[in-house]
Write a protein that binds this DNA or RNA. Sequence first.
DNA 1: GTCTATATAATGATAGAC
DNA 2: GTCTATCATTATATAGAC
Lengths: 186, 186
Amino acid sequence: MATARRRDAAATRAAILQAGIDAFTRHGFDGIGVREIAQAAGVSAMLVNRYFGNKEGLFAEVVEVSMTDRTVLTGDPATLARDIAAALVRRTAPDADDLSPFLLMLRSASNQRAAEILRAGIEKHVEAHVYDVAPQTRGTGRAALVLSVIAGFWLQRKVIGSTALEAADEEELAGTLRRLFEVLLP
Amino acid sequence: MATARRRDAAATRAAILQAGIDAFTRHGFDGIGVREIAQAAGVSAMLVNRYFGNKEGLFAEVVEVSMTDRTVLTGDPATLARDIAAALVRRTAPDADDLSPFLLMLRSASNQRAAEILRAGIEKHVEAHVYDVAPQTRGTGRAALVLSVIAGFWLQRKVIGSTALEAADEEELAGTLRRLFEVLLP
DNA sequence: GTCTATATAATGATAGAC
DNA sequence: GTCTATCATTATATAGAC
């Protein structure tokens, strides 16, 4: 980021972390190098290892920060299925440029070490949040299925770029997704 | 493969292609090198480029072959939702070692060029097959949603390795998935 | 038809200067 | 606290021998 001051450890660290969130979400763990992340943060590549140990350490912290931001799953039980469906359609719209933790997961899951870090982060933060807003899903596997549907839709619409989902009527899409979430969150 | 004869172009080509299917499905486009694929096929790395142009050319042919094999979506309209759910749970079981085209997609989608090849293959073969067995989904986006749910479930259970989905009761899982597909394939 | 050897470029990580 | 310079490794792709 632009505001990284020289000789300010905290600001430099924060700039690298933010650049890491952006880069890993857009390109995946294997799709970006530490040099490019450092350049985006306005520092030399060496400082990535200085502050985060190595590339994997930076990724772990990126996952931790990204997964704690909550924007898709809202808290009103009465309208939960509809709200999730609406947010999902909106945030995956063709012109949306959204740095979602689901994108971070989808684009880094092919790397085995990254997948393990992601699994831990998802279970600790995202899945746990589903249990908070929908306690009835505990022990049923349905919370994990909610995340499966969200991830699968994000994959097809924004990573693969399905033309059927780009062309589909957004209201009809949201309506169908709502019915899926109503099955999972009764 | 072991049966690649020396000085047999067709057999060598086939051996490389099969090794490519295996390697790209297990490790993704960025997670494997042409050296390793050639070694698994019992030939030198040079022959990959000789027969397929380059790594991307081999990947394109791997996608083409993988996507034409049909094993998840069966053809009986009356039991379609139930059959897809059952096959999905069975083929993603913790001890299953399944070289699914969905795994190929999930592990290679982070690469932009691979994603474009995958999108074309999915729309040409897999999505088209959904239209064959469920013509009523045409133009609704629901065929693409079926693929989203399948891909999302495969991701969480076999790529990420969700402990909730590994521990979940398989009959309950199949039942819930069946209800999802019944929403999408009425 | 297939090989070995190599060109070229990029990667993650480290050493040591300032 | 941050840099430049560099190491060791790996990648794809190609040249030329047999």
